[in-house]
Simulated scan of single mutants.
Amino acid sequence: MAGTQAPLVAFEGVQKTYDGETIVVKDLNLDIEKGEFLTMLGPSGSGKTTSLMMLAGFENPTHGDIRLGGRSLKDTPPHKRDIGMVFQNYALFPHMTVEENVAFPLKVRKASKSEQVDRARKALDMVQLGGLGKRRPGQLSGGQQQRVALARALVFEPQIVLMDEPLGALDKQLREHMQLEIKHIHESLGVTVVYVTHDQSEALTMSDRIAVFNDGIIQQLDSPSGLYESPQNSFVAHFIGENNILNGTVESIDGGECAVRLENGERIIAQAVNVDGPGSRTSLSFRPERVEIEDVEDHHDNALKARVAETIYMGDHVRIRMNVAGNDDFMVKMRFRSNRRPPAAGEEMYVSFAPKDCLALDPVAA
C-alpha cells in the first residue's frame, strides 16, 4: 500500500540477539501503513515472531529503533503503546465472564462501569457473540474463545492490533472461516493489523501485503499476488504456494529472458529473474497449474520429455506426478474433465510451458 503520509509503524535498522552471537533479526527496515493488513510470514526461527514481540514491547531491540505514529517506542512500556494483542492460546481469564474479559482493557484504562459494559457488548456483537457475555470462557468452543480474544483486543480502539498465530489451535474448517471473519472485521473497522503466521495460504487469503521472513531477513515484501506470481528468489518461490524446481546452467541472457541448459541436456527459455551471467547455476521455478501435458513436442517454446509416475484424483482437478529432467516429483495440476482421460502411470508424454511461466532464480541444492 503506497501512502503519501508517514507510516504508522517504522522499523529502522532493527536487530535482535539474545546471546550476543546469533542474530535473530538482522537489520530490519519495514514501514507499515495506517489501515493495512500486513502479515509477517515465515518458518519457525525466521524472526517474524520476535519482530512482532519487539513492536508489542515484550522484547527490546538490540540495535535500531521502532516508531509508532512517528514517536520512538524505546521508553514506552507495552501497556502504554495503544496496541491490541491476540495470542494463539487466547489468554482469557477463566474466572471472569466473557463480558468481563472483553471489558478488562477498559477497566485498566479507568473507564466508567457503564462505558465498560456498553463497549464490551458492542465488541461482542461485532464478533457475533452477542448474548454470550455472561458465560465463562470454559463454556465456549475454541473458535468462540478466539472471537472473545479478538473483541478484547479491539474494544479500546487501539491504533494497531497484533496477532501472533491466532488461529493455530483451530481445526482446518474453523480456521478458514475465522480467516474470512478477521478479514471482514479489518475491512469494516479500518484498523491496522500486523499478523504473524507460518501458514502461507492463511497469509495469501487475508493480507494486503506480506513480508516473507527467513534467517532474520525479509526475503520479499509484496502483495499476495506479487509474491505468488513474481517471487524474487528460490526461497519465496518454494515457500509461497506449490512449486516445481529444475536445476540448470545459464547459457545466454537476452533482455529479460535467458536460455538454460538442464542437467539432462534439454534446453529451455525462462524469465531471467535472479540469475548471474552465462555459465552460472540457476534453479527454475514452475507452478503446477501453469504446466500443460502434451502428446507431441511441437506445441510451445518449451517442451520437456516426461514419464507419468502416478495420477491422483482431487475432485475438481487431477494431480499428476511425473519424472521430468531428473525430478521424480514434478507435479502438474490438470483440471478434471469427464471427457478427457487423465494419463496413466508409465505413459511417456511432454510437459510444456510458456517462458513467462518459468522463472530462473538463484540456485538451490538438488
Rank of each mutant, 00 (worst) to 15 (best):
A103Q: 01
N327W: 10
Q88K: 02
R287K: 06
S72W: 11
L189P: 04
G241F: 01
S285A: 10
I312F: 04
D301W: 07
A306W: 09
G255A: 06
P231K: 02
V250T: 00
L68N: 13
V117Q: 00
F336I: 08
K80R: 12
P363F: 01
T311L: 04
S230Q: 10
G64L: 13
F286L: 09
P343G: 10
P61A: 06
P61K: 10
V308D: 00
L162D: 03
L28Q: 01
A306D: 00
I66V: 13
I269Y: 10
L170G: 12
G265F: 11
R321D: 05
L55E: 04
C258S: 10
F235S: 02
F11Y: 09
E266D: 15
L41T: 08
S207V: 09
Q88R: 03
K74N: 08
V108T: 12
S114R: 06
G69H: 04
H79Q: 08
R136M: 15
R121Q: 03
F286K: 00
L180Q: 08
V193N: 03
R121Y: 00
V108S: 11
L167Y: 02
E257N: 03
K172E: 15
G346N: 14
E263W: 10
G142E: 10
P78L: 14
V324G: 02
A6W: 04
A153V: 04
L304H: 09
I210E: 01
N247T: 05
V250Y: 03
P61D: 01
H299S: 03
Q200K: 04
D295K: 15
K80I: 03
V25R: 05
S225P: 08
E36F: 15
P288K: 06
R261A: 13
P94Y: 06
K113L: 00
G84D: 00
K74D: 14
V24D: 01
T205I: 11
F104D: 06
S285C: 13
E251Q: 11
F336W: 04
G241W: 00
L38V: 07
N323I: 14
Y228I: 06
M40T: 05
L140G: 05
E181K: 06
F104S: 01
L180S: 05
M349W: 05
M334C: 07
D118R: 00
K356Y: 09
K74G: 11
I210Q: 00
H95K: 09
D171F: 10
A153E: 00
G130C: 05
A303H: 03
